[in-house]
Amino acid sequence: MGFESFGTVSFTAEAKVADFVTYLEQGKVMATQCKNCGAKYFPPQMDCPRCLSTDAEWFEVKGSGKLITYTTVQYGPSGFENDAPYTLVIVDFADGLRIFGRLSRDIKESDIKIGMDVKVVPVKLADDRISYEFQRA
């Protein structure tokens, strides 16, 4: 079990952080924290680029974060053509955790504001695929 069912296009099946998808199916968006130096990572990483430790643990991303930048894509790359337009965002959570992903289509482009509070939640896509997105907190 890996990333086969993740996202519009899955670019790999195998990954050290494949449990991310299992957690998504359980309704949780998870990140990792290095057990050695405490650094938090999203996308989750089992190897810490800061202290080079390979010992990390999972934690659930809870609460709201602040949107720090975004772009609304009018022309999607290969495999994403039918998804456009969609909005990509970067969101800062507490304790130095920064997450990127798509913004919910429920939020109109004219309502997107830098600094707005959003939360991250798992979402089911077509054809039994799964991902996550940001929604208004």
């Binding site: 996202g7 772009t71 894509v73 990509l88």
Partner: peptide, 19 residues
């Protein structure tokens, strides 16, 4: 980062647009 997260890794125009 991790190939599973490639939805963010859009073409350069998306990368530079966020700046």
């Amino acid at each position: 980062f991790d190939r599973s997260m490639t939805e963010w890794d859009g073409p350069p125009v998306n990368q530079f647009a966020q700046l």
